[in-house]
Amino acid sequence: MSVAIRSPAEYLRLYFLIEGQYIKARLHYRADFMISSVGMLFSSLATLGVFAVLFSTIDELAGWSFMEMVFIYAFYMVAISPMQILFDQFWFLRFDVRQGTFLKYYFRPLNMMFYYVSERFDLKGLTQLVLGVGLLVYSSLRLELGWTPGRLAILFVTLLSASLVQISLVVAAACSAFWFINSWPVLSLAWKMREFAPYPMTIFSGLMRITFTYILPIGFVAFFPSQLFLRPETVSGVVWAAPFVGIGLFAVTYLVWSRGVDAYTGTGS
């Protein structure tokens, strides 16, 4: 095993340097940024729109009020933002692998995942983040949730682990590109699963509940963490596992990535 030459602080500094330049270059395409942000706005709010329409005919869904749904939804939006903004390059992994451009990532004295992640910074994702934070504030005011420094700390930790869950699922799916030529369906499917994250898991029973809790744990992306704040009395042990689920999943994903990197031989002989 090689010893790292670079400390986490130095990695962070490098990251800011690269992304700073990248964002500066990207902002030249102003129209593109505007249109993309609008698109982002639309797509982020689609499912919320569906909920809003539903709630025009019903008062509560499985015991959850509309404002509580908004909170869960906002939590979801903030939680998937890191994946959206920071790990955007993974959408191109299958092309980089196929065309051999992936080789260049081996040659720098940098952790390869860091280098790969640093290639892209998705500005339009900021729209979703800002909107999510806004809705989180709004809904918690309407629900009269008291925020203490302690609760805020828990919020921060749960958001972080929720985003790790989302990142892990999508990145692992993207890594299938190392082994399969037609990896797009896997990635696309994993990404689609996020749509179910804002749904209250209490509506599910049996196989579906098990699937979303233990197999494809998107329950941990929004619903379970939100319960800590909305209905702390009803919280089961599963919810407290949240931070570990996030870290554990990411560890597995990193392992998958490492295997893929080892297995990759580039194109040609």
């Binding site: 090689s2 010893v3 790292a4 030459i5 081996y106 040659f107 720098r108 004295p109 940098l110 952790n111």
Partner: peptide
């Protein structure tokens, strides 16, 4: 192979 990052510094 076992020292990728170190080697990259001098390569």
């Amino acid at each position: 192979y076992d020292n990728r990052i170190h080697q990259a510094m001098v390569m």
